Simulated scan of single mutants.
Amino acid sequence: MVLTNKTPEDKVNSLFDRVAPEYDSMNNWISMGLQKKWRKETMKKLDIKNDSEILDVCCGTGAWTADLARGLGESGHVTGLDFSKEMLKLAETKLVNYEQKSKIKLVQGNAMDLPFTDNSFNGATIGFGLRNVPDASQVLSEMLRVVKPGGFVACLETSQPQNMIVKSVWNIFFKLVPVIAKIRGNNYADYDYLQKTTKEFVSANRLKEMFEEVGLQKVTYKQFSLGAVVLHIGYKKM
């Protein structure tokens, strides 16, 4: 018998390595094509300065990383970090001919132990990754640590709609996700796990409290798609 001592991080990493090839197409289907709109609205809210240094945590295949780079001037820079080697390979492939590629650096690393010094970035983002880490508060603490005083931490994430009718439809939809994934040739268990992390993730109000508990200030949030997706933004004390 082969014994394994995989940590929770290792298990999540393995899952995302497996789903990487279909990740973008499944995300587009699950979001009903709205993910680009959510990121566009988020970029307006962030109002990033041209010369900013930005960290994109759990960058996956680099969708938001690319948006961030597009919003910067020539002296700006984005570092995309992900634990999954396969996700980063796809991101690298996607960005080969991307006109803003010179502004982007991809790094493999652990979101709960960021390989950067304190006060390194003007802002840090995480898109649809916080619900899948073993300790969301630890990730927020690390993002806060590496952001400069006055810098922002932003999280775009699925949430639990408060309207009961919307929530009922939302629950039914996400129960179908692993079934559709299987029909499309993906692993049912992987997407069953992902729909559960979506369903079980904290409410918008609770995530606001978590931002504040780690030390972020002036925390606000904006709901998209009737509360199914929420953007949280907080700032590091000057």
Rank of each mutant, 00 (worst) to 15 (best):
Q138N: 10
D190I: 03
K37T: 14
I183A: 04
L194V: 04
L72H: 01
V177P: 00
T42Y: 06
K237E: 11
T42D: 05
D118M: 10
V57S: 03
R145H: 04
F201K: 03
W64A: 14
K199I: 12
H77N: 13
V169K: 10
L46G: 05
G215W: 04
K222I: 14
E157P: 00
Q217N: 13
D192W: 09
V57E: 02
C58F: 06
V230S: 07
V96Q: 14
E9C: 05
F224W: 02
P149Y: 09
T93C: 02
T197H: 01
K6F: 15
K222T: 15
G109D: 05
T65W: 08
E41R: 15
N122L: 07
N122R: 05
C59F: 10
V2Y: 05
T220H: 12
F201W: 14
A20P: 09
L88M: 03
I30V: 15
P149G: 09
V214S: 01
K218E: 14
D56Y: 10
A63F: 11
C58E: 05
L216P: 01
E213F: 07
G185H: 07
T197M: 06
D118F: 02
I165W: 02
Y235G: 05
K44Y: 12
F83I: 15
C59E: 04
P178E: 04
A154S: 11
N110S: 07
T198L: 03
M26K: 04
F174D: 01
F201S: 02
E92C: 07
V139P: 00
Q217Y: 06
V139R: 00
T158S: 02
K222D: 09
T65C: 08
S120H: 12
N27V: 01
E9A: 12
V214A: 03
L144S: 05
P134T: 09
S137I: 11
A189L: 10
S141M: 12
V147R: 04
R18F: 04
R18Q: 07
D118K: 15
V219M: 06
V78I: 14
S120P: 03
M87A: 13
M238D: 14
L207A: 02
K237A: 11
Q217C: 08
D67H: 15
F173G: 06
E53L: 15
K101S: 08
L140P: 00
D17L: 01
L15Q: 10
N187V: 08
K167Q: 14
V19G: 05
M87K: 13
R131Y: 02
G33C: 11
T61F: 02
D113A: 15
A154Y: 01
W29G: 01
E74W: 02
I172H: 03
P134A: 03
K44C: 04
Q195T: 13
K208Y: 06
E92R: 15
Q35R: 13
A63Y: 08
N28I: 10
G129Q: 02
L130Q: 00
L95A: 08
F152E: 01
F121P: 02
S75N: 13
K44G: 04
V179C: 10
